[in-house]
Structures are given as structure tokens and as C-alpha cells.
């Protein structure tokens, strides 16, 4: 009986095992290998042996060999990594706090509660590219944002046409916060909803002011969710890419050799896409491994913290 079940189970698992091996497990190992290959050719698999140079080059440690054709490889350490860190460390705290405030307020109302909950969830299902384009229109030099705030003819999103790196980053962070809110609000709301009424009753008997109840009782009770959300937001923040394409398109500068809006994932895909037909998968792979290490660190922190802090 045991034995029979055994082989049957593997039959049920066969399709997923095939797909997960071909498109998940093998790629992980293979990409790791590619990141250590010199001058890897994706079509033939040809390479010039094992090297650490790909990492050295994208991280700016290895000097560039003179004569190597103009490549974007250095932009990883120059733009991609700093931009990604900036976007993440600016947008995550703001959006977590904002989501907390909105969820706490939302938890206080009964009339129209479901309607507002749905509205706040709406950005989750939308196409990041499409709404990014709407943001670009709102923030164009003759757009709605300048008009409402009477700012005149400021160009926010087109770097070639008067906008700067700083202004682009400002709009980008706003957009990243906007897209990140719905998930956080939904998780916080359901955590707040699950808090036992007795905590509120106890606070009321003690005549605790409402703001104090929120600060001293409610927040600690949902602290596991806050931690979870913060760390997962960091992880998604490190993968930011679609928002940039939506807002700025791929050709956002007059000078095609300046990529000051790169993020790590943007860099990776641009290296796969390549310039003038030459794809640099080895640099993309090295970038992906760096991203993986960053995400791994955050995941480990999350696991450690979750073990300590979860209370049922």
C-alpha cells in the first residue's frame, strides 16, 4: 500500500517537477555559473573560462581593460545600485507609515467601509506601465500637477527636456509609494480587523484616550504584520523596474550613454537586451547574483525577527 502510493505521488508530481526543473532550478544554477564565465556567448555557450571579473567589472573593482568597446557595465555601481537603495529606503518607510495611518483610520469607520477598502486596493490590479504613463502626463511640464500647484513650466519627467535626476527620482518615489500602498493597507486592515475587541474594551474602561489606544495597544498587537510588510517591501523595492519604464520609457535621455535612472533590475534586463545586438548575459548574471545576495540577507533577517517577535 505504502509503496503503491509512493509511485503514484510521483506521477502526480511529474508535470510540476519537469517545469520547475527546466525553468526554475536549472536556471538558478546555470545563471550562477554564467556569472563566473568570461565573455560568455549565449547562443553557442562558448566562453573563455572561469573568472571573477564580471563581478569586479560591474562593482567597479576591476579596472576596465583599455580597448574594450563602450559598455554600460560600470553603470551598475555608478547608478543602478545607489538608485535602487535610494528608492527603497525613501519609499518603504513612507509607504508603510502612510498605509498604517490609512488602515487605522479605515478601521474606525463602519459606513462605506467596504467601498473605501476597495478603492484603496484598486492600484494593486492595475498595469504598472499604464498608470506610470498617466503619472508622466500628470507631471509633464504643462500637466495637471504644475497647474494645480501653480508651479509654472517645470518639467518633472523628461530628463532631456529640462528635468533632472532629482526631479525624476521624486516622481518615481511618489509613484512607487502609490503602487505599494494597496497591498500594505489590505494586510494591515485585516490584522486590525482580527484584533480582539476585549483590548479596546479594556482600554475604554481605563479611559485611555483613543490616540493612546492606537499607539500603545494597537500598534504592538500588529507589530508582526508591520515587520513582515516592511521587509517584503524592501525586497520588492529592490526589484523596482516597471515603474521606471512606465514613467520615463526606455529612452528618457538625450544622451543614450547616460543611464542615471538605472535600477538593479533595469540594469540586468538592459544587459540581456544588449546594445547593438551584443548581449552581455554574464554581466546580467553577475548583477542578478548580487541582487539575490541582497534579498537573501533581508530574508534571513525576516526569518530571525519573525521567530523572535511572533506572538499568538
Amino acid at each position: 500500500m505504502e509503496r503503491k502510493n509512493n509511485y503514484k505521488a510521483w506521477l502526480y508530481l511529474a508535470p510540476i517537477l519537469i517545469f520547475i526543473f527546466l525553468f526554475t532550478i536549472f536556471p538558478i544554477i546555470n545563471t550562477f555559473i554564467i556569472s563566473f564565465l568570461k565573455n560568455y556567448n549565449y547562443a553557442t555557450g562558448a566562453n573563455e573560462g572561469f573568472t571573477f571579473e564580471n563581478y569586479g567589472l560591474i562593482l567597479g573593482i576591476t579596472e576596465r581593460i583599455p580597448g574594450v568597446s563602450e559598455s554600460k557595465m560600470l553603470d551598475f555601481i555608478r547608478y543602478a545600485l545607489p538608485n535602487t537603495l535610494l528608492i527603497t529606503f525613501v519609499s518603504v518607510p513612507i509607504s508603510v507609515i502612510l498605509a498604517l495611518v490609512i488602515s487605522i483610520l479605515l478601521n474606525k469607520i463602519k459606513v462605506l467601509h467596504d467601498l473605501f477598502q476597495t478603492i484603496f486596493f484598486l492600484p494593486y490590479v492595475t498595469n504598472t506601465i499604464a498608470v506610470g504613463m498617466v503619472f508622466a502626463i500628470i507631471f509633464s511640464n504643462t500637466g495637471l500637477f504644475n497647474n494645480i500647484f501653480g508651479l509654472g513650466n517645470v518639467n518633472w519627467v523628461q530628463e532631456g527636456l529640462g528635468s533632472t535626476w532629482g526631479k525624476c527620482m521624486f516622481v518615481l518615489c511618489l509613484y512607487v509609494i502609490w503602487t505599494g500602498l494597496p497591498f500594505k493597507i489590505l494586510i494591515f486592515s485585516s490584522a486590525l480587523h482580527n484584533i480582539d475587541q476585549q483590548y479596546y474594551d479594556a482600554a475604554r474602561i481605563d479611559a485611555t484616550p483613543k490616540w493612546k489606544t492606537d499607539l500603545k495597544i494597537v500598534l504592538p498587537l500588529i507589530s508582526p504584520q508591520i515587520l513582515y510588510i516592511t521587509i517584503t517591501s524592501f525586497i520588492t523595492g529592490f526589484k523596482e523596474y516597471n515603474a521606471i519604464i512606465g514613467l520615463f520609457n526606455r529612452s528618457y535621455t538625450i544622451n543614450p550613454n547616460v543611464h542615471d535612472l538605472y535600477t538593479v533590475v533595469y540594469y540586468i534586463y538592459d544587459q540581456i537586451q544588449g546594445t547593438n545586438g551584443t548581449r552581455h548575459l554574464e554581466y546580467a548574471a553577475a548583477g542578478a547574483v548580487v541582487l539575490f545576495v541582497i534579498i537573501l540577507i533581508f530574508t534571513l533577517i525576516q526569518m530571525k525577527v519573525a521567530k523572535k517577535r511572533v506572538h499568538y
Binding site: I20, L22, F23, T24, I25, F26, P27, I28, N30, T31, F32, I34, Y42, A43, F238, K239, V265, I268, Y269, I272, L281, A284, A285, G287, A288, V289, L291, F292, I295, L296, T299
Partner: peptide, 20 residues
């Protein structure tokens, strides 16, 4: 465990697979 590995790791090799 594969869930915490960024999709970009897979995309690079999957791209070569599809190209080949």
C-alpha cells in the same frame, strides 16, 4: 526556497533556453 530567489536569476537562463 525557490520562492525567495529573484526572478531575474531565472530570466537570464530562460532567455538563452528560449533562444536556443
Amino acid at each position: 526556497a525557490t520562492m525567495m530567489i529573484p526572478g531575474e536569476m531565472m530570466a537570464i537562463t530562460n532567455f538563452t533556453t528560449m533562444a536556443n
